[in-house]
Design a protein around this nucleic acid. Structure first.
Lengths: 188, 188
DNA sequence: TGTACATCAGTGAACGCGCGTTCACTGATGTAC
DNA sequence: TGTACATCAGTGAACGCGCGTTCACTGATGTAC
């Protein structure tokens, strides 16, 4: 069979990327291209048509995941909040919001698995630098940003080594972190 | 050649474990047993004699690394500090002390790579539960522990995704986290 | 103390198979005339 | 509008090799007598 009717190439590409996200996040990088192809409902050859090697697929996945997190943070921006630190607060909420906390953990686990590859490490470094700039431009004192962002990062990846926070602990942490940023904004 | 003179079986075992730590941390889980054996100066067969499968080796390594971190924290305990929160402060220092920060990152990267394996995840979870208990017994309010430990965790693993703190930022963070614990201890 | 034997602590070659990659081929879609 | 041709978007089988595992064998160490 050749080209599949009713589906463009871009659709298939996204199908494969979604499948890769699912499979690699749950089973680690050791998962096979056969697994990904099966999950995507595409032949292995079809997968390879879009991503010529496993490396290429993995890099595309990392880029997509970083972009997705950025989008999630912006979706958490409070439209009624125009004080300094609004982006930091959105970052905290996006990192620790209940529904996708598991996803955030899996995402960081996957990125952790991949940064041993230099190209992936470089992509991640560039993204981190961009975050640092964006967050610094948010109007809060640098030390507050460091503290709050570190705590959000730590709490969201702690499940990696099995240290999950209870819901009430997490809620309390979010409240406290948001509080720290608003205090700092008013001190200025 | 058979048994190597002047070296006990336990010595060889440790040699292999050290080599595995070095190789897997720098090159990821994808690194081969050949690599580990070469680094240890042992034949592949010799490695297998001590660790019958790669899984077994990896589990032993994880256990050793978790134990090592625990030892490092206890080494950071301040003998002159008998206030509540002394263990939390040691945890902060051990996580963020300059020399072995890179090592801490590599260690968490490796554990992140491995938690997709259920046995490893279980070991890590048990270790995390033990930490939670130990830290809770340290005399500080729960919300302070959550905040401080999350921030220490976050700052120590952030290099995973390329977000390294500058030395002065890290020093400032340590000072602030330690400060938070002593304030909380005096409020009681 | 010497001798025989069992076990321990390895060696290194060979095996086998899982998995990434290659490849010949194909049906659907777009384009020129 | 039909026709011929090129390209796109795949299929699925075969290949090949890297790497975990197995195995036959060996020299050193411990133990019984």
């Amino acid at each position: 069979m050749g080209r599949t009717a009713g589906r463009g190439a871009g659709d298939t590409r996204r199908l494969v990327l979604d499948a890769a996200s699912e499979v690699f996040r749950t089973r680690g990088t050791g998962a096979t291209l056969d697994d990904v192809a099966r999950q995507a409902g595409v032949s292995k050859g079809g997968l390879v048509y879009h991503f010529p090697s496993k490396d290429v697929l993995v890099q595309a996945l990392v880029a997509a995941m970083l972009e997705e997190f950025r989008t999630a943070v912006h979706a958490c921006l409070d439209p009624d909040d125009d004080q300094p630190g609004r982006l930091v607060r959105a970052y905290v909420r996006a990192s620790l919001s209940l529904p996708d906390t598991g996803e955030a953990r899996e995402a960081s686990a996957l990125i952790a698995q991949l940064v041993t590859a230099p190209e992936v490490a470089e992509v991640a470094r560039a993204d981190a630098a961009r975050w640092k700039g964006d967050l610094a431009a948010d109007g809060l004192p640098a030390d507050v940003i460091t503290l709050v962002v570190s705590a959000a990062d730590g709490a969201s990846v702690a499940p990696l080594w099995g240290a999950t926070l209870r819901d009430d602990e997490r809620d309390q942490l979010v409240a406290r972190l948001v509080g720290l940023t608003t205090e700092a904004a008013q001190d200025r």
